[in-house]
């Protein structure tokens, strides 16, 4: 199975977010929204994330079945709940899942390769690549610091909140900056520099599926901008 190209993922993410979040939901936008909703579902099933796929499917099923009732005359309380939940899910969930899919399935080197194919300069690419690595690192560090605070009896109760903030932020910043420092040194010894060419072993490229997905996204965006999809336009 050929992997989806990181550039496709990025483009889909942008398209889905723009159309789903800021677009209209009637007329020709009904089929467009359905197609864009199905894209993350399809990609997730392809990765064999059956549990997430099912939950995602059920969430949208809920939206498509019940969204219509918000236009009818029903009591206030269920109406508010319905408006709120369907609105939230239909506007945000697809984009969110697409972002999750992109983060989970793209390795740093694929990402770097894709960015360089788009001729984005290294000074931009490298910090982004490091970010990928730092989210899990910060999570690990935060977990450890929380445990240590608990151990030492430094809690929220009875202390100046500013002190507590200091107790949390100082070790986190110190340890993240130390990791960044050591990481820079290690990367330098591995010949990483902002100038100079790199080669790539990551195999990225567009497959038929990529082309299909991009066509869907382009159609969605086209309708959005030129067939009056923007709300209020």
């Amino acid at each position: 199975m050929k992997k989806t190209d990181p550039r496709t993922k990025l483009f889909l993410l942008i398209a889905i977010n723009v159309v789903m979040m800021t677009g209209k939901i009637t007329g020709i936008f009904v089929p467009i929204r359905i197609i864009l909703t199905l894209i993350p579902l399809l990609l997730m099933i392809r990765e064999k994330w059956y549990r997430s796929s099912l939950l995602y499917f059920l969430a949208y099923l809920y939206v498509f079945l019940l969204e219509g009732y918000t236009l009818q005359d029903i009591p206030k309380v269920p109406l508010i709940i319905l408006l709120f939940t369907t609105g939230l899910i239909s506007r945000f969930l697809a984009g969110l899942m697409m972002a999750y899919y992109m983060m989970k399935t793209t390795t740093v080197s694929e990402f770097v390769t894709a960015m360089e194919r788009m001729h984005i300069p290294k000074v931009v690419v490298i910090p982004f690549a490091v970010m990928f690595r730092f989210f899990p690192t910060i999570k690990e560090e935060w977990q450890d610091i929380k445990n240590a605070m608990k151990m030492r009896g430094i809690g929220l109760a009875g202390r100046n909140p500013l002190d507590v903030l200091e107790y949390v932020m100082v070790p986190i910043l110190m340890s993240v900056s130390r990791i960044a420092d050591e990481l820079t040194a290690a990367s330098m010894t591995k010949c990483l520099s902002v100038d100079g060419k790199r080669s790539h072993i990551a195999c990225i490229g567009f497959s038929a599926l990529d082309v299909l997905l991009i066509i869907c996204a382009v159609l969605g965006l086209f309708a959005h901008f030129f067939v009056g999809g923007i709300i209020g336009a």
Partner: peptide, 30 residues
């Protein structure tokens, strides 16, 4: 160079990319 702290010497998140990282940086043939 191999360093002391195993937590802070990897640029990549997956092992294969890390193994290839230095070689990629000097533009070695894939």
């Amino acid at each position: 160079s191999v360093f002391q702290n195993p937590r802070s010497q990897f640029f990549n998140v997956d092992t294969d990319s890390e193994l290839a990282f230095a070689a990629e940086n000097i533009a070695m043939d894939p």
